[in-house]
Design a protein around this nucleic acid. Structure first.
Length: 802
DNA sequence: TTTTAGTCAATATT
DNA sequence: AATATTGACTAAAA
């Protein structure tokens, strides 16, 4: 990892990138695909250059600013990777909260254990307010690092507290040493291989509680079946399909992951478990050895793994719960009365991450010397039975994520509460994540257990009558803490003034140190410039899942690290997928009305901003199978998540199917937008693509570009032009989407197909935005198509019915 | 191994 | 200052 530092060439503002890219590019050349890519890049580059010039100038100035970056670093954030590492370890302590208080790690089988809890939860869930206890699950990732850094000073106390609780006696020698964390695999290590693995995430917690098991990590072996068990099950017919179904169900219900299940119960790796569960061989075709896992599954379902699991049961418990707890862990300890948002952040020595510290305070007074004891911790928990949020999540009925986020947004805005505050104190997420969640919530059914957690929290928060007050208090506390930090002891002063100097003054010495150590370590964030993004987007349109070779080509040509390219594709695919999902539903809430324009005109989606409204419905009877498939797929994708309301939706859907016209907003969005895209497909397929259209659009784009360069006025006008042109091009779907679609749909890489030159980049923000938008649309489509193709290949059964 | 989900946290925008 | 975007990273799943 460290090596990467050397790579930092690409830093934020990068005038250099252009230079670099040019160099890199010249070198290669080769296969067709290479050529293609190359040409794409070339075009992109060329078109961009002009703008870049201008940008460069600007950037030049900004560069100077960049140079200051390092400084910032010290005072604030730690090097990313470091944080993350720490993050991993963090959970260790936290996870403690193991499970249910009352039945502490008893001998119950994991399943029984979980069920117990669930039962309990069910009975208690009704009560409002309780959630606050567990609300804090999130890891305080960054906290620890900062702590360590500032260790020398007073601050350490807070952190200490944490450590104390968790690792109680267990800690190996150094115990809380700051060293501890780091060692715990900075990089990935084979989970099983090492004890260290244990330390990681979930493992850690366990350790604290069950030191003795520590070594256990070594091998995920499972005790052999007893002769009786063997006899009992080996020779009698078993419906493996049904069995695996039940197992899957139970695993899902209890939030047990395959890895854990495999390790603890079957003695198999996660991959094997996945394979076995998804494609179980018929009993008759299994060898004796092959049947063993299935027998174990049966025993597990019956809860009869008894002794064999016993020992592990502890682990598995933890496992099962650990996730739960580990998350909520942070809070649990505090849980007692923290419904009182009033956590004074006392020490908060660290000036930096105040907010996160909020969580830590309690532990301190609660169990100062908890170190010794697990018992103590458990005891603490006893009282409030902190049901892990995860249990709640697991039992939660379907929630309407759109409605929830909408409501949350309203409440936050109405009360002038920020995302940061809300995220950090209620959801345990950072501002960025909150923003993302609120603006693009995924439908419930598309969320994993973990993904649902924030929504459950939001829901709970919404139902809490004092939610706003609590948040306000929280805000106050933060402010207070801030002041305190700033002025030493809290001296009520105006908080106006100059933060600059003081903040820095915090720990001069340390700061220095940090500077040194981190300045180097700090991994500058890569920022892809427009040209690069454009190139990547185009590449994506042709190949959403590029081969290793293609990736490398791109990396070379763009002078990017291979990983950056890979990450970009991962992220882009992921975000594209989300776009598809979101498009519809959102509309629902917001403005349903605007789109009735059944405008035949498939109005174009001009800007991202308007995209949501853009949906036009261009459907038409033309739709082919493809279209239908897409629709189905889409429907499968979202929809039916809102319980009650769902009916309406469903109806709409159905209707839509027949008519597909516009009006129904309920689903509208998604489907519609899709439809729009889809509409193109048939045409494309049918070869209706007309070069003219393409030309047109290209031209238009170009025009915009030419003008765009500098002056605002022309800029504006140009963008307008561009926009309209885009619309036009979109109107003729074929033109707009053809390139990408053609490629993805039919592998026929006709050299001609590729990208229209025009589409190249626009540095002009406005223009590029719309272009981007267009690309996104295409990307969406191709993404969908890909999925459909894959689905088709595996004959995926449509499992939804009305 | 590769892909997907979920996040973080640095930047960008508003 | 608040919110949005996005490259990177960890886990879990396939």
């Amino acid at each position: 990892m460290i090596n990467e530092f050397s790579v930092c060439s690409r830093v934020t503002g990068d005038g250099k990138s252009s230079l670099g890219s040019s160099t890199g590019r010249s070198s290669s050349g080769g296969s067709n695909s290479d050529e293609t890519i190359k040409s794409i890049l070339e075009q992109a580059r060329r078109e961009m250059q002009a703008q870049q010039q201008a940008l460069l100038e600007l950037e030049a100035s900004s560069q100077s600013l960049c140079s200051q970056e390092p400084h910032k670093t010290l005072s604030g954030p730690m090097p990313t990777y470091i944080k993350q590492e720490e993050g991993n370890t963090m959970p260790v302590c936290p996870s403690i909260p193991i499970g249910s208080p009352q039945t502490p790690l008893s001998v119950l089988s994991p399943a029984a254990f979980v069920q117990n809890i669930i039962r309990k939860v069910k009975s208690e869930i009704g009560e409002a307010g309780t959630y606050f206890d567990q609300h804090w699950s999130r890891p305080f990732t960054s906290v620890s690092p900062s702590l360590s850094s500032s260790s020398s000073s007073v601050p350490s106390t807070v952190p200490r507290a944490w450590n104390a609780e968790c690792p109680p006696g267990t800690e190996e020698g150094p115990g809380t040493e700051e060293d501890e964390p780091p060692p715990s695999r900075p990089v990935k290590v084979e989970p099983e291989v090492c004890v260290s693995g244990e330390q990681a995430a979930c493992g850690g917690a366990r350790m604290s509680y069950y030191p003795s098991y520590i070594p256990r990590t070594l091998k995920p072996t499972v005790p052999p079946l007893t002769p009786e068990q063997y006899e009992m099950y080996m020779y009698r017919e078993v419906d493996t399909i049904e069995l695996t179904r039940q197992v899957k169900e139970k695993l899902a219900k209890n939030g047990i992951c395959q890895r854990i299940f495999g390790e603890k119960v079957l003695g198999l790796s996660q991959g094997s478990v996945s394979d076995m569960l998804s494609r179980p061989k018929p009993w008759s075709k299994l060898t004796q050895k092959g049947r063993e896992p299935f027998i174990r599954m049966q025993l597990w379902l019956l809860d009869q793994l008894g002794q064999s699991l016993n020992q592990q049961s502890n682990h598995s418990h933890n496992r099962d719960k650990s996730p739960v707890t580990s998350h909520s862990s942070p809070s649990p300890p505090l849980s007692p009365e923290d419904s009182q948002p009033s956590m004074p952040n006392e020490p908060v020595s660290l000036v930096l991450e105040s907010s996160k510290e909020n969580q830590h305070p309690h532990p301190q007074h609660t169990e100062p010397h908890g170190v010794k004891g697990t018992a103590g911790i458990l005891a603490l928990q006893q009282p409030h039975i902190p049901l892990g949020i995860q249990e709640l999540v697991a039992m939660s009925p379907e929630l309407d994520t759109y409605a929830i986020t909408k409501r949350v947004k309203e409440v936050l805005t109405d009360n002038n509460l920020g995302q940061r505050l809300f995220g950090e104190s209620i959801l345990g997420l950072t501002q960025g994540s909150v923003s993302d969640l609120l603006s693009r919530p995924k439908p419930w059914h598309k969320l994993s257990l973990k993904g649902r957690e924030p929504f459950v929290r939001m829901q709970l928060w919404l139902t809490d009558p004092h939610n706003v007050d609590k948040l306000r208090d929280m805000k106050k506390m933060e402010k207070k803490a801030y002041l305190k930090r700033r002025y030493g002891l809290l001296s009520p002063g105006s908080d106006t003034d100059s933060p600059g100097p003081r903040s820095d003054s915090i720990s001069p010495g340390l700061a220095q140190v940090e500077v040194c150590s981190y300045s180097q370590a700090k991994k500058p964030r890569v920022v892809l410039n427009a040209e690069e993004k454009e190139a990547l987007r185009k590449a994506y349109l042709q190949e959403p899942y590029p081969s290793q070779h293609t990736i490398e080509m791109l990396a070379t040509q763009l002078n990017l690290k291979t990983n950056t390219v890979i990450n970009w594709f991962h992220n882009y695919r992921s975000r594209m997928r989300r776009e598809v999902l979101v498009e519809g539903p959102l509309d629902n809430d917001a403005d349903v009305e605007h789109n009735f324009s059944p405008s035949v005109s498939c109005s174009p989606i001009s800007d991202v901003d308007e995209r949501k409204k853009a949906q036009t419905i261009c459907n038409g009877p033309t739709m082919l199978n493809v279209k239908q498939e897409v629709e189905e797929e889409e429907e499968k994708l979202h929809i039916r998540q809102d319980t009650c309301s769902s009916m309406a939706v469903h109806l709409t859907v159905m209707k839509t199917e027949e008519e597909q016209t516009s009006g129904n907003r309920d689903l509208t969005c998604c489907p519609q937008s899709l439809r729009q895209d889809e509409a193109c497909i048939p045409k494309l397929l049918s070869g209706s693509v007309s070069p003219d259209n393409i030309q047109k659009s290209n031209t238009a784009t170009f025009e915009g570009e030419n003008k765009s360069p500098v002056d605002p006025v022309s800029f504006k006008s140009s963008s307008e032009t561009c926009r309209s042109s885009l619309e036009v091009s979109l109107d003729s779907p074929s033109a707009a989407s053809s390139p990408g679609l053609m490629m993805s749909v039919s592998p026929v890489p006709s050299s001609s197909a590729p990208i229209s030159p025009s589409q190249a980049l626009h540095s002009n923000t406005k223009i590029s935005k719309s272009t981007q938008r267009r690309d996104e649309k295409m990307a969406n489509l191709s993404n969908i198509i890909h999925r459909l193709e894959r689905a088709a290949n595996r004959e995926e059964a449509l499992d939804w019915e009305f």
